[in-house]
Design a binder for these strands. Structure first.
Length: 96
DNA sequence: CGTGTGACTGGGC
DNA sequence: GGCCCAGCCACAC
């Protein structure tokens, strides 16, 4: 099987601008791993992909990333409410 | 091969 | 709205 890391990065790259996916969704789509593994992978390889398109289930990200992420969401036109992603409207899935 | 650790999540109080 | 807890699995030691 492929490296978990490669799978995560490959999937994140397929997320279109203005849309986001949650950590749990990534793990679910890959069919393995879990939210924490996805998060750990992003912490290591995040800089190599559009990491701001991967958010927590509540539409936020760790404090040290919020500032940068908000600027990018604004640039891409991602649905944001009170500083956090409106997951209900922005969530993206390879199927839908 | 056992342990600790983590950009998480969902449920309970 | 918040805090705590248990489950999750890949990776480094």
């Amino acid at each position: 099987m492929e490296d978990f890391t490669e799978d995560v990065l490959a999937f994140v790259e397929t997320v279109p601008p203005g849309r986001v996916v949650t950590y749990g969704l990534v793990a679910d789509v890959l069919g393995r791993g879990g939210p924490r593994q996805v998060g750990r992978t992003m912490a290591l390889e995040g800089p190599a992909v559009p990491w701001w398109r991967v958010v927590r289930a509540n539409g936020t990200l760790p404090a040290h990333l919020m500032t940068d992420a908000q600027a990018r969401w604004r640039t891409e036109g991602t649905p944001v409410v009170r500083g956090r992603v409106d997951v209900a409207r922005a969530l993206w899935t390879p199927d839908a």
